[in-house]
Design a protein around this nucleic acid. Sequence first.
DNA 1: AGACAATACATCGTCGGCGATGTATTACGA
DNA 2: TCGTAATACATCGCCGACGATGTATTGTCT
Lengths: 177, 177
Amino acid sequence: MLELAILGFLYDTPLHGYELRKRLTALAGHVRPVAESTLYPAIKRLEKAGLLARTTEPGAVAAPRHVLTLTDEGRQELRGRLAEPAARDVTDENRWFTVLAFLRHLDDAGAQAAVLRRRLAFLEEPASFFYEGDRPLSAEEVDDPFRRGVLTIARATSRAELSWLRETIASLDGASK
Amino acid sequence: MLELAILGFLYDTPLHGYELRKRLTALAGHVRPVAESTLYPAIKRLEKAGLLARTTEPGAVAAPRHVLTLTDEGRQELRGRLAEPAARDVTDENRWFTVLAFLRHLDDAGAQAAVLRRRLAFLEEPASFFYEGDRPLSAEEVDDPFRRGVLTIARATSRAELSWLRETIASLDGASK
DNA sequence: AGACAATACATCGTCGGCGATGTATTACGA
DNA sequence: TCGTAATACATCGCCGACGATGTATTGTCT
């Protein structure tokens, strides 16, 4: 997930680590903070894999900066990860939001719609958090107020997302014809 | 998170690992599947920490079962984790839902309300996923349709959750007087 | 002159999650 | 009778996340 976000930010423009960190924090830091000790090893991994290159520049205000630039492989890798996200990237909202944040980097409207359709299929499956045997329980059937809250919130999210997905898919389908 | 859910399920009744796994899968498996290779080590950790005990029983249909029972320390630990969840447990929806799923095990309505208030404080902070400088952008201000989707969905969730939180806190406050 | 915050990067050790793989047993249908 | 699915548990090794800690520079406030 971190890696996807790094590739996504660098797809637009080269950045140094510190700036990258600020952008990652703005993107999802309020939900899941990014530790520096997670970011720098991740940059190293991506560099080792040939997805990005660094050039050292004298620091503008402090220590020397390592400016990070995506390589062609890196750009291809991002498009690949966006076009064919792992199952978890589609089902887990945190990961899914990261995919959405950078999905515009897929240049093909059809490919973008295909990704949205995967999420649509997931949301259309009848699933709950709580069951009676095999039957999913609705908010009204749950006594525990906290569990009812979970279902109420999940339903609101699901409705909003379904209608957004359907609209957006329709508009992408229209555009790609 | 896994540990919290294990403690939460066992708080009600002793279970063997396989049954526990099915309940964990029902709870959050559609979002984040639970690998067996994650569950069994987690059980071991909790046992080692003295939070649960096992007794071996002949298997009803197959291999012998290890029935898991919470110890008094385990029960106390769960209440502690619920009463004072880590920051991530409050901000990350996946973790937060797990807290909610078991919050009824806190017997004090005041303590329950205090936990909900932490989430309320988090949701009331002005935060976005996308910024122009320091200013959070609203859905209307974002051109990218996918990013607009993120904000639209997040707003719907946030609204539903805020109204649920306020209602539920009020009702808990009423009950504890 | 000294303290402190911000900038900028890095390593180490630990811990948790996970895919792959292994081991039994029971039940059921081909 | 043979394969397969379900039940039930377990280990190994890798990888990623993270807290703690370290290093160095620049600008600002006191």
